[in-house]
Design a protein around this nucleic acid. Structure first.
Lengths: 353, 353
DNA sequence: CTGAAAGCGCTTACAG
DNA sequence: CTGAAAGCGCTTACAG
């Protein structure tokens, strides 16, 4: 027995045929209890593991899911959006629960990832994460559908969309933000984020906030107070600067993401504006930095842990050719100092909650 | 031609034998230029990808590296140490450059990961990341070495250590922190972190700081001002509280990691202590939050991007049975507001640098 | 430069 | 309940 043991080695030691070993190991009911036990004991002792390549080849199946994370082209190469970190953790754990391995890869939206995976049996299906220009991306989704590659993506849930999406209720989240600001008496609210069909998530957040302001009897969001920004601190910083340069009055800012909000707060602070005294700020995502920023950031929370579970569960079902629906998850609001709605926490508030 | 095309389909269309297709695709020199071109064109057109299972089975090789990230048992389930995020990005990119896939898995230190991978041909080698009790872990490393499983780990580089490690010069980093504090006139410095052989990285940071203080003519670090803490915000918070309760005077804190530092700063702030006025703080890691915290945190920088490259390069060489040495990477210090050594940055300082 | 043959280690009908 | 046989799709000596 040279090197790694094979099922044949075990068969020899157990005095049975090799297929019987295979059956016993996979828990087939067509093996006697006694034989199974003997085989399992030997396998354990030899530290035998089924060869994934052989098994995958025979079963035409990889037992692996691929997670493709798209990097914002604007982000410097070391900075993945921290929003995805807990989701990544949740995805890996859910994969383990389903007995799948997880291949992780960072991609540019422009790459040929839609061909690279799936076609090579590297992975049985794809999980697509990341912000980016949706229109540049929709075509590739359609191509995946056409080829029958199972995939799920995190992002805006829209009608007529190729494939299955899991996303948060961005409109609802935006509405929570808008209602909160309206209740505090804010009327002229700026929006930092690319609110166009290129970024449907941001657009929905914009629309939700707009709706809440109107419901509160106001005018809604003013496009003159909207500045494009992708989800990165330096974009938020630049957007805030651009907003100030327009010279229009505003009392609060709703940032399309926490990274944008944090960059904007930095710009405001450097220009001597007090937060929330001169300008209130609301973000979106509740990344860890939202609690560390000064002032701490009021923001819309998405349940990233649950999201990771839903993504993997949906993909596993898709691979099994079961029907799967897109899911829009509820969002909630957490009020912190940046909108003046909460006093400084009396007890330790950074590690928990 | 049903479903996915195989090399046989291409052979048929190209009018050659199947092995010739295989040779052409892998760039063997034993194929005429003309034949190769014809084959490549057909493969391209059919969107052919080599089946990884078949190829891996035949070559006894996975083309895959496994990244095992150990979670701090104390961290809540969604919080991976953000320090590892840029490293993860760098690792995935370096893997792509080496034409390897990356399997990612989160493990408890107690799990049987040392058997799970490698033995099953899931991966050709392991990358081990994560903080945790080193002594609980050393035995498993020795077992990996014994089995001949190629692996590299991120962590303290020590003599007589099983396997290959890539780590930063923790002693040197601690010395930079100590020298900085000494130069500012601080003498009584507390250390927050588990400075024992269970956490050799923290111990080295402690020892480096101690050495610098002595070199500056002081007494070194006082164990009475050292409080155990693992790398998490709530641990740093608790450690700072415990430190204050001891009632001993101290002027500055060297935290074994940024997460500890940020938790500690929170505790100090809540008790009305000014930073750096009443207590200066230095961290270690330079996670993104270090720049967002208020005050911004002076800290020791590790080059995580380079670290990711070194880890993958080393593992690839190990797999090829080439000799590989452990590497200790230099650390540097970035001075920010928490030690009062730097004025508030005049320009935008959050996104770049 | 190319082809016929063997085999990587499994899983799964097919017999018994 | 168990075994003999075939085959998943490649790669690689071995001939020519």
């Amino acid at each position: 027995m040279r090197g790694r043991p094979t099922s044949l080695d075990i068969a020899y030691l157990a005095g049975v045929s090799q297929p019987t070993v295979s059956r016993a190991l996979r828990g087939s009911p067509m093996v006697s209890e006694e034989t199974r036990k003997r085989i399992l004991a030997i396998a354990e002792q030899l530290n035998y593991k089924v060869d994934k390549n052989a098994s995958g080849l025979r079963r035409q199946y990889a037992g692996t899911l691929a997670l493709l994370l798209f990097e914002d082209p604007t982000a410097d190469e070391s900075h993945i959006n921290p929003f995805f970190l807990p989701m990544l953790g949740s995805i890996t754990r859910t994969c383990a629960r389903h007995d799948r391995d997880l291949l992780v890869s960072f991609q540019q939206l422009s790459d040929d990832w839609h061909a690279e995976y799936g076609d090579s049996h590297k992975a049985d299906g794809l999980i697509l994460l990341g912000y980016g220009d949706y229109l540049a991306y929709e075509g590739k989704l359609a191509k995946l559908v056409e080829r029958g590659t199972p995939f799920v993506r995190w992002g805006a849930v829209m009608p007529e969309q190729p494939g299955v999406s899991i996303g948060c209720d961005n409109f609802g989240g935006g509405r929570l933000a808008g209602a909160h600001l309206a209740a505090l008496g804010y009327r002229r609210i700026a929006f930092l984020g690319d609110a166009s069909e290129h970024y449907p998530e941001f657009l929905d957040r914009f629309a939700g906030c707009d709706a809440a302001l109107r419901e509160a009897g106001g005018e809604g969001l003013d496009r003159a107070l909207q500045v494009d920004a992708e989800s990165a601190e330096h974009c938020g910083y630049a957007a805030a600067v651009a907003l100030l340069e327009r010279g229009l009055p505003f009392e609060a800012v709703f940032a399309a993401s926490d990274l944008i909000a944090i960059g904007a707060m930095q710009a405001f602070r450097e220009r001597g504006l007090r937060i929330p005294g001169d300008v209130a700020v609301v973000g979106f995502d509740d990344i860890p930095a939202a609690r560390i920023a000064s002032p701490t950031l009021t923001t819309v929370v998405q349940d990233t842990i649950r999201a990771g579970e839903l993504l993997v569960d949906a993909l596993v079902r898709l691979i099994a050719r079961e029907p799967v629906e897109s899911v829009r998850m509820p969002a909630s609001l957490v009020v912190r100092e940046s909108t003046g709605g909460a006093p400084a926490p009396p007890v330790h508030g950074t590690g928990g909650q």
